[in-house]
Structures are given as structure tokens and as C-alpha cells.
Amino acid sequence: MTARPLPIPPRLVTCSVDGAPVAVPQGSTLLDACRQAGIDTPTLCYLETLAPVNACRVCVVEVEGSRTLVPACSRPVEPGMAVRTDTERVRLSRRLVLELLASSVTLDRAAPELRRWIERYGADPGRFGPPLPPTHPRDAAAPGHHGAVLVDGAEACHQPVKDDNPNYVRDYARCILCYKCVEACGTEAQNTFAIAVAGRGFAARISTEYDVPLPDSACVYCGNCIEVCPTGALAFRGEHRMRGEGTWAEERQVVTTTICPYCGVGCNLELHVQDNAVVRVTSPLGHEVTRGNLCVKGRFGFQFVQNRPGEG
């Protein structure tokens, strides 16, 4: 009786992953097939709720007959594909992606899986020399040109933290340019487009127009970018402060799911509570109402139940 139009039952497509046959619904990606086959495939720029941009290339696999490796996260399975996930070529490219990222970006707040992958692929983050700051301010870099080439180490993305609003900070020295925040701010969810990728090449960066501070941008502080950031480049201001003070203790935090107290849409909130105080608010990616997205009230409007003074 409640019906939404029933989808036509998907056809199954069979491919092989590391020699074993895997049948997945048509339209599935190689990543889906790998996961179904129980193969742990590293991903950084991939997220279930966003269209894959396949920019990080850490999920590449070898497909028989393909000249280059292919990104598992976005390539649809075709019948008869023979996929290899652990060949020398795959291991080398995955290792290099991890080494290249680690040589240019601070990764110590990234998801714990990242450390596991670095170990598994034997990536040596120091291989390209010690990370050095760029010679020019990154936000002023002109496309098609760069400063003197450094020989003492590896040019990195280091730059000062952008702390320009009461709600969250942007620490782009941690940004791996996975595009997730841009997608979440853009067509995939919020459609506010306060941030986009600016510049190009190694100087590409996430930026507002002309790098104006967030309060001068279109930002509406929904925090949906924080929700999807895999490396801690975007963080609640309180979390940023607590991490700086050394008081951030995820192991002591309890997460409770509840419903937003404001308008009547009924968004699911996950309250991360440490010492009887909300320190972060997320939303479950899998819930069909929010798909992980909130507005400023849901994300930041929790202070009224807290006795501690507002962040500021």
C-alpha cells in the first residue's frame, strides 16, 4: 500500500576480482564488487553520498585489457571484467599516492584507516624529503607559474590556519583536495557554492572567491563540508581548540542519535558528547532524510542546552 514505484529488479553482472567470480547488480562499481568480495580497498575521495570524483587515485585496480589502472570507485562493472587488486602495478601506484600525499599534506588527523594503508603498502612518507613550506602564499599563486624549485626537501601545502568565523576553522595544510567539501557545498547537497577549487596544479586549493573570509562569502555555516572532510582540515572551532589544548578525547566521547530541535523537517543528529558537553554534531550518512547534511541550526545550534559559555 505504501508504495513507491518498484524499481525493475536489477540484472546481475559478473566479473572476477582477483580470480574469484563476483556477481553484482548492474550499475555497481568495481569498488562495490571489491567490497562484496571482501577486499579492503583504500579510498580517500570516495563517499557513499557523493558522486565519485575519482581524484585521489588510491583505489586504482588493474583491469585486464586496460592500458592504465582504473579507479575502482567510479568505474562501472562490465560483464566479464577481470579485476586485479593486488598486483605490483596496483601496489606501486597506491603506495606512490600515499607517499605523495604524505609528502605534501599533514595527515595526523586523518581517518585511522589511512595509517593502516600506509603500512600495508609500505609507503615511506619521508621519501621525497622533508616537507617544506611553499615559497609563495598559496592563495595568491598564478596559474601556469611557480616559484623556484626547492632542492632541500619536498614542497608542501603548509599555510596558516584560516580562522575567520565563530563556527569552524579551515586548516588547508591538511587538505588533500578530495573535492568532497566542494561537492557537499555544491550540487551534491547544499548548493550554496561558497567554496570551489581555485588555481591549478600543485597550487590548486579550496577557496572562496578571491579568498575572502567565510563571513564575506556565500557560506551559510551548514557544516556539511566538515561532515565529509576525511583529514580534519575542516573542524568545529571547539574541536580545533580542544585538540590544540590536548583535551580532545574521542575515546571518552559518547555519540547519541536524536532529532534536531528546530524546524519540522526532522533531521537526525548525532551528538558527540564529551564531559557532558556537545563537542561535535554530525548526521548519519545513511538516513534518507538528511544523507548526512544539516543546516546551521542543526549543526551549531546546540549551545542552548549547554551551561558552558559559547565558543567565541
Binding site: 547519541t256 536524536t258 532529532i259 526532522g266 551528538l271 557532558n276 556537545v278 542546552v305
Partner: peptide
């Protein structure tokens, strides 16, 4: 507060009844 300090349910504009839960003392 009925929010974050109490247990119960609320109903949204699509008639969806959902649980609210206590997260804080």
C-alpha cells in the same frame, strides 16, 4: 530540555515519527 536531555518521539512534516534521545544530564 525536551531536546538532548529527554527521551521520547517527535513527528516530522512527512509524518515520520522518530526517537529523540537523552545525550546530556
Amino acid at each position: 530540555a525536551s531536546w538532548a536531555e529527554s527521551e521520547g518521539t517527535v513527528t516530522s512534516s512527512e509524518r515520520r515519527v522518530q526517537r529523540v534521545r537523552r545525550a546530556l544530564d
